[in-house]
């Protein structure tokens, strides 16, 4: 008997993508907010707050893309060429941002250039990821096992809107992180930025939640048909509750809560997309099972993944633990 590895791989890949969105999400968000910092001192504090963790966060992108290639290659072969330009823009922005981060500390004469590259790169990479998300929800023009549309199909009003929405979303995560890691003026300013991003997120999530079912009958049926509507009502209710907690925490003195509730909001949005699309991995065309690689392939890779992934997770958690607490301006940098 052949074991069905698809559910396990769905969980692993789903978790890897969520980790990426969460982890690189907050440091991309911090990068976006970095552009609004008023002076050198606060800029270096902001950068120090993510310097020990950002490249580890980004590595989840490699695991996510290779994971999609390994577990659901048909989806990889259809989706990635369909979002050719957003992927290109994201990669170039991430390279620029990553290198700007490193060079910033070694190339003092051009520090403003690298500052700008870091912040703009973060914003552009985020916007491009949002376009990928929007295009993915809308679906692609597929014939047989191929994407046959144009490389510009992915730029729609909807996907541009999700791009903008993600900028606010990552901005909210980034503000939450900065509230957690900083003190005084900088923390106060982060709260203010967090409130602005929060309003943007609420409006965006609201509009996307209405736009998606209006655009797509299958998604509308998934949410509003009987008896689904009874099972799924808790999803928007919990999201609203989380939004309420987030707003309250941004306006009182709590330092941890804004980040935690923002994670909660992301988790619910992620869950919402998963509920809308399951079991499709290429919307309207292929299910997870249809797009899966050969069972032998999934089996061969699962062995090492189940062994190495927990170690990687533990190490990541440990490195966050090591660098816990408020960030100092004079540690590590010069």
């Amino acid at each position: 008997m052949v074991i069905d590895f698809v559910p396990l791989w769905t969980l692993i890949l789903g978790a890897a993508v969520f980790f990426y969105v969460l982890l690189d999400g907050f440091d991309l968000g911090v990068g976006i907010l970095y552009g609004f910092a008023p002076d050198r001192a606060s800029r270096s504090l902001i950068m120090n707050s993510i310097s020990p963790v950002w490249d580890g966060n980004e590595t989840w992108l490699i695991l996510g893309s290779v994971g999609l290639f390994a577990a659901f290659p048909l989806a990889f072969a259809i989706i990635i060429p369909a979002v050719y330009f957003p992927i290109l823009i994201m990669l170039l922005a991430l390279i620029f941002r990553g290198v700007a981060f490193e060079f910033h500390f070694r190339d003092a004469p051009h520090v403003t250039v690298w500052d700008r590259a870091f912040s703009i790169g973060s914003g552009v990479a985020t916007f491009a990821q949002g376009i990928v998300l929007g295009a993915f929800i809308q679906g692609f023009n597929v014939a047989g096992r191929k994407f046959i549309g144009s490389s510009f199909d992915c730029f729609t009003p909807f996907s541009l809107f999700t791009g903008l929405a993600l900028v606010f979303g990552y901005g909210l995560l980034g503000a939450g992180w900065l509230i957690l890691k900083t003190e005084g003026e900088l923390q106060k300013r982060s709260r203010q930025q967090g409130r602005i991003c929060f309003i943007g997120v609420v409006i965006a999530v609201g509009i996307v939640s209405l736009w998606t079912p209006l655009m797509d009958h299958d998604i509308a049926r998934r949410w509003f048909s009987l008896p689904n509507i009874f099972y799924l009502t808790p999803v928007p209710i919990i999201t609203l509750l989380l939004a309420f907690f987030e707003w309250r925490s941004l306006n009182n003195q709590s330092e941890v809560a804004p980040f935690i509730w923002a994670i909660g909001l992301f988790l619910m949005s992620y869950l919402g997309i998963a509920i809308s699309l399951f079991p499709m991995i290429v919307p309207h065309h292929f299910t997870l099972w249809e797009a899966a690689s050969a069972p032998e392939t999934q089996a061969f890779l699962i062995v090492g993944t189940l062994f190495l992934l927990p170690i990687i997770l533990m190490y990541s958690a440990w490195s966050y633990w090591v660098f816990r607490g408020k960030v100092q301006s004079d540690v590590g940098y010069h």
């Binding site: 980004e58 992108l61 490699i62 893309s65 290779v66 994971g67 290639f69 390994a70 290659p73 048909l74 990889f76 072969a77 259809i78 989706i79 990635i80 060429p81 050719y84 992927i87 290109l88 990669l91 991430l94 390279i95 096992r145 191929k146 994407f147 690689s293 050969a294 032998e296 392939t297 061969f300 890779l301 090492g304 993944t305």
Partner: peptide, 27 residues
């Protein structure tokens, strides 16, 4: 980071044909 994406963006038919063999090695 650029490399695995190249297989998808520019070489998707190669990716579809060879994934069962090559993806675990890259994984």
């Amino acid at each position: 980071i650029v490399m695995p994406f190249q297989f998808g963006t520019n070489w998707s038919r190669y990716a579809d044909a060879t994934a069962n063999i090559l993806s675990p090695l890259l994984g």
